[in-house]
């Protein structure tokens, strides 16, 4: 990593950390996790299940929301406030700016996920009075949530590289929802014919497939997950994010900045 890239990465991280809205979201998540044992008291015998489902879903969904929330402004804010001028007038390549921003936001989300996970495990320990091997198993779901962050960051950055924050947010959120139902899209493609099949198949591969990365249901029931699923999902998230980031670079390299 060259020094310009790491400088941009760290500055992006620093911006997010000093942004107060981020703390609000984290506090919200911590509250949610902390109140999870209360849910458990309502459904007797399901404390752990509910705590795991709520906790892991919160880590994933709030990470994605924070990713979208910060991601939409990553490029457009620097253009709007003209801070980008003072960067591009330096020996910084445009791709370095995009990639640095990407790493910066991913770093932010990973740190977030770690904080939320710590809170989650603390809640689990309070509720169960001990941690077992099955609880370690939950780390796979958290790891997959981080893979989701890689993808949503790339997607948001792509939109941010050519669109306004509002539209970026709408596009990114729409892709998040569609990506959650990506399995249905693939099933639909499998059942369709002709042009519809072609389009549905293309769409099913083009959208970020969050369905493939969601294993909260399985780990909550302590069902085994194959090593090949972990390898393949890792590959998928890395390659997909790289492709989308390359797309963002392609757009940004040629863009006239206002």
């Amino acid at each position: 990593m060259n020094s310009r890239l790491s400088a941009i990465t760290l500055n992006t991280f620093r911006e997010a950390v000093r942004d107060r809205v981020l703390y609000n979201l984290i506090i919200f998540v911590l509250l949610l996790v902390a109140s999870a044992p209360l849910f458990g008291q309502i459904s007797i015998g399901l404390e752990r299940l509910i705590l795991v489902n709520v906790g892991l879903s919160s880590i994933s969904v709030f990470g994605i929301l924070i990713g979208i929330f910060i991601g939409i402004g990553l490029v457009s804010k620097e253009i709007e406030k003209k801070t980008l001028y003072t960067i591009l007038s330096r020996p910084v390549r445009r791709w370095e700016f995009i990639v640095g921003k990407y790493f910066g936001l991913v770093l932010t989300l990973v740190v977030n996920a770690i904080l939320m996970s710590v809170g989650f495990y603390v809640a689990l320990l309070i509720s169960e009075h001990k941690l077992t091997g099955a609880d370690g198993h939950l780390l796979i779901a958290i790891y997959f949530a981080v893979l989701e962050f890689l993808m949503i960051t790339a997607v948001t950055l792509l939109f941010s590289s050519f669109s306004t924050p509002i539209f970026s947010a709408i596009f990114a959120f729409a892709l998040f929802v569609i990506g959650t139902f990506a399995t249905d899209l693939r099933n639909f493609a499998a059942a369709a014919h002709g042009m519809t099949k072609w389009f549905a198949t293309a769409a099913a591969y083009a959208v970020p497939n969050f369905a493939s990365l969601n294993v909260i249901g399985q780990v909550a029931h302590d069902q085994p997950l194959g090593g090949s699923l972990i390898v393949m999902n890792t590959l998928y998230a890395l390659l997909y994010s790289a492709a989308v980031t390359a797309g963002a670079v392609l757009i940004f390299e040629r863009r006239n900045l206002k």
Binding site: N11, K81, K82, T83, Y85, T86, S89, R90, P91, V92
Partner: peptide, 14 residues
């Protein structure tokens, strides 16, 4: 670009 400096109009910084 190592050898030039630039101050934009009405700059805003982080």
């Amino acid at each position: 670009k190592r050898r030039i400096g630039f101050l934009p109009e009405q700059p805003y910084f982080y």
